[in-house]
Amino acid sequence: MKAVRYHTKRDIRVEDVAAPSDRLADDQVLIEPLVCGICGTDLHEYVAGPIVTPAQPHAYSGAVLPQILGHELSARVLDVGRAVTTVKAGDRVSIQPLISPRDDYYGRRGLYHLSEKMACVGLSWAWGGMGERAVVNAYNAIPVPDTVSDIQAAMIEPAAVALYAVDRGGIRSGSTVLVSGLGPIGALVLLAAKASGAALIVVSEPNPNRRALAKSLVPEAHVLDPRAEDVPAFLRVRTEEGVGVDVALECVGAEASLNICAAAVRRRGTVVQVGLHMRPAQIDAMQWALKDITVEATWCYPTTIWPRIAAMIGAGIFPVEKIVTAQIAPERVVADGFEALLDPSGRHMKILVDMKASA
C-alpha cells in the first residue's frame, strides 16, 4: 500500500509498504484513512527530529522509525475484531490518536493523555493516517454523525487541543479573552472562545495573512499586530476599569507572546499555556505574583472530548473547517504540504492530505 513515511530530519518519503494484516486482535479496528491533517508536531519532526518519533522501539507500542505519519484523521471502518462493539464495518470515524495503558496511575484515573508511556497514532504507532490502511484500538475509533463531514472529522483532533485550552481557562458567556498567536491551534482557540460565549475577543498576531484570517473567522474580534500596537494598553481601554482580560491564551510557544499574556490579563485572571515551547522562557515572576495570576498549562486533551466536539460541529457553532487553506494528494505532501507550511509568509493555515486524491 502507499504510505507517507518519516525517516529522519527533512526526509519524508511516499513509499510502498506492506498493508496491515486482516487478522485483527479482538479489540482492534482496521480502517481506511480518508482525510489527514499536517500538524505542527509533524512540522517539528520534519525540521528538527526525531523528537517524539521513536528512533528506538517505543516503550509501550514498540513502534520504531520509519513512521507512517498522520494523527489528525477521518476514516472508514473496514473490519473489526470480535470483541469490538462500538463501531462496525462501514462506519465513518474520527480517530482519537492517543494510545496508553488503561491500568497505570493515570489510566486508572481516566487521564490517558498523561501516561508516561503514551504513544500516538502517526507518531509512535505502527500505523498512521497517511497510509491507505491502518490498524487502531477500538477506543481510538470514534463514530461521527452524518452532520460531520470527513474534513470536519479530521479536524476534531486539533480542535480538541483548542477546546481543552478554552475549558482550562474557564471561558464562558461574557468572558473577556486574549488569543496570542494565530497558528492553526490559535485559530481553533479563537473559534472555541467564540463558541463558548466570550463577549470580548482580542487577537495578537504579527503575520498580516493570519490577522486577515482571524478577522474572517470572527469578524467582531479585535485583531492587533503586537509589533505595532501595545496590546495590554489596548485592553486597558476596553475592559471594565481597565483591569485587563479574564483569560489570555498563549498559542504560539514564544517567550514574547507569553509575557504579553501576563501583562494583558487582569489580577486573579488566568493565563493558559497552549503552544509548545521549544526552549525555556524568561518571565517576570514578580509580576505574576503581584497579579495573583492562575497558570493553566495544557497537554493534549481528555480523550472523552470527541463526541462533544462532534456535536458542536454538527450544530454549526464550531466551524473548524474554516481554517483549512488547502487539500493535497499524498504524493505532494512535502512540496505542497510541509514546505508550504514552513513558508515564513504564513499564507497557509491548515493543509489536509486527501488520501483518495492522486497527484
Rank of each mutant, 00 (worst) to 15 (best):
I351W: 06
G90R: 08
H277Y: 03
A198Q: 06
R236S: 07
E250Y: 02
V87G: 09
A153P: 03
M278N: 05
R172A: 12
G90E: 07
L290N: 00
K194T: 05
R332A: 12
E321L: 06
L341Q: 00
A212K: 02
V166N: 06
V4W: 09
R347T: 00
R267I: 06
A233V: 07
L258R: 02
M355P: 06
A198C: 03
D26A: 15
A165Q: 14
P57A: 12
T85R: 09
C120K: 15
A195P: 05
I293W: 02
G128Q: 11
Q282P: 08
R168C: 15
V252L: 04
L78R: 11
L200W: 04
D103Q: 03
F338N: 08
A264R: 01
L276N: 01
L24K: 09
A263S: 03
L352C: 04
G107S: 04
I99R: 10
S61P: 04
V87K: 09
V179A: 10
E241L: 13
A141D: 11
L34F: 11
I323Y: 00
S257T: 01
L200F: 01
P66D: 08
L163N: 05
L341P: 00
I38C: 01
L249W: 00
R82P: 12
P219Q: 09
L341Y: 03
Y164Q: 13
G49L: 07
D22S: 12
S175W: 01
A326V: 03
V247E: 04
S196E: 06
G49M: 08
D16V: 12
I68M: 15
L182E: 09
A359P: 15
I260R: 03
V14Y: 15
P57N: 11
E205G: 02
E157H: 08
D354I: 03
H71M: 12
Q96N: 11
Q282K: 09
I351E: 04
T8E: 15
V353P: 07
Y105G: 12
L182I: 06
P307A: 05
S74N: 01
C251T: 02
D230I: 03
R332D: 14
G174P: 02
R267M: 10
G81L: 10
P97F: 11
C251Y: 05
I309M: 10
V237K: 12
A263C: 05
L98I: 14
A199T: 09
E321M: 08
V177T: 06
I171T: 09
R108G: 02
L98E: 13
R332V: 13
T239G: 06
E32G: 15
V93K: 10
T325D: 00
A281M: 04
M155E: 05
S21L: 08
V324A: 01
P158T: 05
C120M: 15
T298M: 15
P219A: 12
V272W: 08
G186A: 08
Y6K: 10
R133F: 06
A187D: 05
Y139N: 07
R211L: 00
A248W: 02
P66H: 08
A263D: 04
A75G: 08
Q273H: 14
V252G: 03
A297N: 15
V14W: 12
I99L: 12
Q273L: 13
T147N: 01
L43I: 11
D104S: 07
G49H: 08
I68H: 15
L352V: 04
P226G: 07
L342K: 03
D27I: 11
P280H: 05
T294N: 11
C261R: 02
V237H: 11
M349V: 02
A195Q: 09
H277G: 02
